[in-house]
Every structure is written in structure tokens, then in C-alpha cells.
Simulated assay, not measured.
Amino acid sequence: MTSAAVQDAPVKASPFFEEKVLWVKHWTDRLFSFGLSRPESFRFRSGEFVMIGLPGEDGGKPVLRAYSIASPSWAEELEFFSIKVEDGPLTSRLQKIQPGDTVLLGKKPTGTLVLDALKGGKRLFLIGTGTGLAPWLSVARDPEAFSRFEKVIVCHGVREVDELAYRDFYTADIHDDPLVGDEAKAQLSYYPTVTRQPFERQGRFTDLINSGRLFRDLGLDGEKFNADEDRIMLCGSMDFIKDMGALIESHGLIEGSNAEPGDYVLERAFVG
């Protein structure tokens, strides 16, 4: 092969954008959020996830993980909510990022935690544990959520009280949102629960649902999900997804997908 042929060989396009870190917020020693610049060509539906990563050390392959996009589809920047794993291949490094650093961003967002995958109804339950709150930060700021449903109920379960990241956002700040502030005041409910510390509400979601307390606390008719009116999204650990999916189906709801909308959806491609 001649040197000219080598020079003319096409350069393979990278599957990633290289985006700048705009800000970092550490909630606890286990949780943090960060914002990235958004490429002009990057499009996604609220609730989707994308691959996030850092270049490999010593010239190795990039280290990547799937992350739900926590900002709404119309936002000018991209927000993410992450755990910190001391020995994690990615988060052990990602938790140390600073504004101005570069993070790899995948070019193809995808996922099933989107409004398109649900049939119409009256109430939308967004139920997540830990960083499984992330997609609800996107969906709950999407005007379509409030136009399609009379009530939007964000349910967040954590182990300790200080892990209720974004609590102030759901109880106050979202009311000042330029697009959905008025709708959030009238239609949004925030339902936090803690499992390992005293709190106004304690217990796992499966127990709160089985006992009927979740429905009583929210002032809803009946003490189980209504397959005709309730639509549900789930995000959290694999055990949480498995247990909640079985419980929801015992109430008569059917899982949906992008190809065939249903009564509830979960994300099988990744956890948390």
C-alpha cells in the first residue's frame, strides 16, 4: 500500500462526543450529579439513557456505563445522577471530575422509560430507588407528561434520609420551572420513603403498596393499582424491578414497550 493510499483512507467516525463538564454536585459520599455540554445534533426522548464514559487509562479502551439522562429533552445541557463505587471501573474515576474536564457521551440514546411506551391513563406513577430517580427528573419536566395524565406521582425510595437527592426540587423548585411550573403545582405529587432511618414515611415500595398505605397517603380511591387508569414506570436495582414488576402484574397491568405501548414499563438494559 502506498503512502498516498494510507493518507486517503477514511477516518472512522467516533461513536462518542467529547463533552465538557459544566458543574458537579456531591449530595453525599455515595451520590453525585453532574452536567455536560450538549451537542447541537444530540436528540433524545425524556426518560432515555445513553452511554457515558472516560478514556481508558494508559491508552486502554474507554470505560463506559449506561446512564439515564436526568435533564428533559428540551434542556440546553445534559444532567446525570450517579452513585459512587470506590472500586468501580468508571465511577471510581467519574466521581472525581471537575468543571472543564471532558467526558465521553454516546451518540445513540435509547430506552423504554418513555411516554411513548405507555397507553393513556389518568395517573402516572414514576417509581424509583436510589439513582433510579434519574429518568423521572427528565419525564417530570416534560410538558407531555402533564398533558397526557391528570396526576404525575414521583415515588423515590432510599436507605437514608440524606440520599433523598432532589427533594427540594420536587417540593419547591419545579414549581418555578418555565415550562411546567404551573402544571407541577396542580398535578405533581412527590412521595419519598426511607428504609433504614426514622422518617415521615418508612418502608419498601412493595410493602407500602401491599398494605395499601401508598394509595391512602396519596388520597387515591382504592388500595391497589387500577389497570384502566394507572400507568407506571420503574427504575432501580434488578431485585426491585423483578419484585415490583410481579406485584404490578398481579394488579392486572401489562408491560409495554416502544413497539407495543402498555400499562407499565421498566428498563431491562441497565440498572439504576
Score class of each variant (00 low, 15 high):
V103G: 02
F34G: 04
E267H: 09
R268G: 12
R201M: 05
K185W: 12
E183W: 11
E150T: 11
G47Q: 06
R216H: 13
A184F: 01
D101T: 06
G262K: 04
D217F: 05
F146Q: 00
A246C: 11
K12H: 13
P99N: 13
W23L: 11
P15T: 12
Q202Y: 07
R123E: 04
S3M: 12
F34E: 02
L115D: 00
D239N: 15
F205W: 09
F225S: 03
V6L: 15
V158F: 05
G53M: 01
T195I: 09
L105W: 03
K242G: 08
E200G: 15
V161M: 00
C235V: 02
T102R: 08
W27H: 11
G106P: 04
E163N: 07
L188D: 04
R45M: 07
D116Q: 12
V21M: 04
V180T: 06
L94H: 07
M244H: 00
A66T: 03
D182C: 09
T91D: 06
P89V: 12
L253V: 02
F32L: 09
D87N: 13
K108M: 12
G121E: 08
K84Y: 13
K20S: 11
A259E: 15
F125K: 01
D173T: 14
L133T: 02
F240N: 00
F270K: 06
Q7D: 12
T131C: 10
G47H: 07
L31N: 01
G262Y: 05
V21F: 00
E144N: 13
G35S: 04
G245W: 04
D87E: 14
P15K: 10
P143D: 05
L218P: 06
D87L: 10
P109H: 05
T2L: 09
L208A: 00
T110V: 11
F199A: 09
A186M: 15
N226R: 15
D228Q: 14
R38L: 07
T129D: 03
I174K: 03
K107P: 00
H175Y: 15
H26C: 11
Y264S: 03
Y191P: 02
L234P: 00
A172Q: 15
E40S: 14
G128I: 04
A13M: 15
L36E: 02
P178F: 14
T193V: 05
M244Y: 02
F44A: 01
D217S: 12
D263G: 14
K122C: 05
P192F: 02
L266Y: 08
S211F: 12
V6Y: 15
R43G: 11
L218S: 06
V24P: 01
